[in-house]
Design a protein around this nucleic acid. Structure first.
Lengths: 195, 195
DNA sequence: TGCATTATGGAACGATTGGTTCTAAAGTCC
DNA sequence: GGACTTTAGAACCAATCGTTCCATAATGCA
């Protein structure tokens, strides 16, 4: 099957490590050296396996997006209702205010904020990832409407935008050092708007 | 009065130009060269007048914050009511979705997102600037309660957090390329939560 | 006219950036 | 053993990073 010397590292794990670096530092501030150290591979391996820094970032962002969406979809189906899923997601995020995780924020919103509307591939991919989050909220809202927890007459796409906005705002609030009480209070207000 | 050779540039204008660079590129990505070109001064003048890049950023952030708060306070007092001020602020921001201005976002939220909880001075100052925005919303909510447009029984501090979260989220949404319709719809939902 | 003081332009600093290329060794399959 | 691929590491590139230094220019004061 595979000819030649086999890979000495797991591309999956390597991407996961690179993802952590981009997550903590952002795309521009993450140097290739930082990535090499975290990935525990040599320079030649990085360029042979992933091309360059930009392509590695795209792989990491893609991975993050896929993992996040899959995790949330599992959570959604495991929840007693779509509304409790949404409520739990926001409340858990707010409750986690003081953790390292909250300080990192979300790679997708971080990237959208950093890369803005530059027009290059990483910027567009960040926007695509935001759209994936919005799409998941849309799905949850539709389900909650079918379950009778949200008025079926309300525009589900609009509510999906509202929830995406709210989650992005919550992450920024947490990044600026908001307490769990402050974040939790604001989140309850967000959730009131759903019903 | 002043001894020695006089300054050949206006520190005010120079800071304003530097602010634009930090605004468009972020703190880390803004190079000293970019700053020098925009400020139209020489390298030595920058370090003599402002110390270093970090201190220059702090001056720019401070300036941005003071200008923003002053402008919003003027707008608040000029508005027929505090509620119309809040509504107008959010609607105008959403309506402006496709402008360059919207693509830049807000320097304060940009900085909070980029610098996160690093613990250094720029990071802390970004958090202070977010707190200033929150404080302004708090003031507007209290006034709206006094004017009978918001239920006086509701927690004004909580609503201020809610509005800060919403504005931060709106800016992230616009940075990810949301249309004026999408942003406007989400904003209406945000405003419904106030009443 | 000199002196003190401050600002200026520009060179230069050492370190680091992302990216590429090279070499020699090592591992695996046929 | 030969074909093939990956490995580690060094070297290199031009560019950039933030910062420092120095001689010079421009002003007020004596």
């Amino acid at each position: 099957m595979t000819r030649g010397r086999p890979l000495a590292f797991s591309p999956d794990q390597a991407i996961a490590q690179a993802m952590q670096v981009f997550w903590a530092q952002g795309y521009n501030s993450a140097s290739t050296r930082d990535l090499l150290v975290a990935m525990q591979i040599s320079r030649s391996s990085l360029y042979q396996a992933f091309g360059n820094k930009e392509q590695l970032f795209l792989e990491a962002l893609h991975r993050y997006r896929d993992n996040l969406v899959a995790r949330l979809e599992r959570k959604l189906t495991a929840s007693p209702s779509a509304l409790t899923f949404i409520e739990g997601l926001f409340r858990d995020t707010a409750r986690d205010a003081c953790s390292e995780r909250a300080a990192l924020g979300c790679l997708i919103f971080n990237s959208a904020s950093e890369l803005g509307q530059r027009g290059d591939v990483p910027s567009r991919e960040a926007a695509v990832a935001v759209a994936a989050i919005k799409q998941l909220f849309h799905q949850a809202v539709l389900q909650a409407q079918a379950e009778g927890d949200i008025d079926a007459n309300r525009d589900a796409a609009m509510l999906a935008n509202y929830l995406t906005l709210s989650m992005a705002g919550l992450r920024t609030l947490l990044k600026s050092g908001a307490s769990a009480e402050d974040a939790g209070g604001a989140v309850e207000q967000v959730l009131i708007g759903l019903r």
